[in-house]
């Protein structure tokens, strides 16, 4: 591993920072720098960076602190607003999904009744229901209870969820 540190590095850095390098610093330090690779690099790099810093700082234009504070406040409020609305969006999405399930369930429940009711229009109905290969009446009875439970849960849980969400916020 190469030697990464020179004992005179800090002295040289102090001289560079204070603007004493090279004219107003000890001849001994100048002589040391001439023979030290680490210090030679330091002079090269720090001199260039100081020069660049002085130029760049003279040309900096940052927004006023009040503007940055005000923008941060506005943005934080907007994000708080979005956070407040997020649970409502979730509840609405869940309600919509459950609603869709309920509609599909109702459709299957009502399918036999629809078949019977529209028997006179058998031509049209046959065309419609044959293609769908509807489950038999026993299968409909088997699914009636789960569908009724889902529908009932949806009708009870959704308003409670909305109430609790709105209450918390």
């Amino acid at each position: 591993m190469p030697n990464v540190e020179c004992p005179r590095e800090q002295d040289l850095l102090d001289a560079l920072t204070a603007g004493r390098w090279p004219e107003r610093c000890e001849a001994e330090l100048r002589a040391h720098v001439d023979g030290c690779a680490i210090c030679t690099d330091l002079v090269e790099v720090v001199g260039a960076l100081f020069d660049a810093r002085d130029v760049v700082y003279a040309d900096v234009a940052v927004p006023a602190s009040g503007t940055v504070w005000w923008r941060a406040q506005i943005r934080a409020r907007r994000e708080a607003s979005l956070r407040a609305a997020r649970p409502m969006t979730v509840v609405q999405a869940v309600a919509a999904c459950l609603g869709l399930v309920a509609v599909i369930g109702l459709y299957f429940l009502a399918a036999p009744w629809l078949s019977d009711s529209f028997a006179p229009l058998s031509g049209l109905m046959t065309f419609r229901f044959d293609g769908l290969t509807l489950p038999g009446i026993d299968a409909v009875k088997q699914w009636a209870w789960p569908i009724a439970v889902i529908l009932g849960t949806w009708l009870i849980v959704t308003p409670i969820a909305i109430y609790l969400t709105a209450g918390k916020e």
Partner: peptide, 26 residues
């Protein structure tokens, strides 16, 4: 829902730093 959003927007946003400290730090 709109009222809730409006309340959130109107509420003073609490940062860890107050405005004076922020300005000085900035």
């Amino acid at each position: 829902v709109e009222r809730l959003q409006a309340q959130a927007e109107d509420a003073e946003v609490a940062f860890e730093m107050d405005e004076d400290s922020f300005r000085a730090f900035y």
